Simulated assay, not measured.
Amino acid sequence: MVAYRLMAGELNGEIIKDRGPMVAQMVAGRQVIIHNEKGKELSRLKWGEYFYIEPGAAFYFSADGDAGINMVLFEIK
């Protein structure tokens, strides 16, 4: 398992693909939106919540610039 820490400035809409499975968990902040590669909203994460991302899925994160985001992305290898 590998863990990545993501802050608000790193949620730049860059598509993540061919990874996983993964679990995204909010540690602090208002809200992070998870989108599929075509921009469709998959989920909204708030503090303390998590979201399972299937292996090989293409997705990206977005958030308000001042949202104080701190989240962890766990990748199971």
Rank of each mutant, 00 (worst) to 15 (best):
A3N: 11
A3D: 07
Y4E: 11
Y4G: 01
L6W: 03
L6A: 04
L6G: 02
L6D: 03
L6F: 10
L6V: 05
L6Q: 04
M7L: 13
A8G: 05
G9V: 01
G9R: 13
E10F: 01
E10S: 12
E10G: 04
L11P: 01
N12V: 04
N12I: 07
G13S: 08
E14G: 10
E14I: 06
E14T: 13
I15D: 06
I15T: 14
K17M: 11
K17C: 13
D18N: 15
D18F: 04
D18V: 04
R19K: 12
R19H: 06
R19S: 13
P21A: 01
M22E: 15
V23M: 15
A24T: 08
Q25S: 14
Q25T: 14
Q25W: 10
M26I: 02
M26R: 05
M26T: 02
M26E: 02
M26L: 09
V27P: 01
A28I: 06
A28Q: 15
A28T: 04
G29M: 11
G29E: 09
R30I: 09
Q31Y: 02
Q31S: 12
V32K: 07
I33G: 01
I33P: 00
I33T: 15
H35S: 13
H35P: 12
N36G: 04
N36A: 03
N36F: 01
N36T: 04
E37I: 02
E37L: 00
E37T: 00
K38Q: 13
K38R: 12
G39N: 07
G39S: 05
G39C: 06
K40R: 08
E41V: 07
E41W: 03
S43W: 11
S43I: 07
S43L: 03
S43P: 00
L45S: 05
K46M: 11
K46R: 15
W47T: 15
G48E: 13
G48D: 12
E49L: 14
E49C: 09
Y50C: 09
Y50L: 11
Y50V: 03
F51R: 09
F51K: 09
Y52T: 10
I53E: 06
E54K: 10
E54W: 00
P55Y: 05
P55K: 14
G56Q: 11
G56L: 03
A58K: 13
A58L: 06
F59W: 11
F59S: 04
Y60E: 06
F61Y: 12
S62K: 07
S62V: 03
S62N: 06
A63G: 03
A63L: 01
D64E: 15
D64T: 01
G65F: 05
G65A: 12
G65K: 10
G65W: 00
D66C: 03
D66R: 04
A67S: 13
G68P: 07
G68Q: 09
I69E: 02
I69F: 05
I69M: 08
I69L: 04
I69K: 05
N70G: 00
M71R: 06
V72N: 11
V72W: 10
V72P: 06
L73W: 03
L73P: 06
F74S: 08
K77T: 08
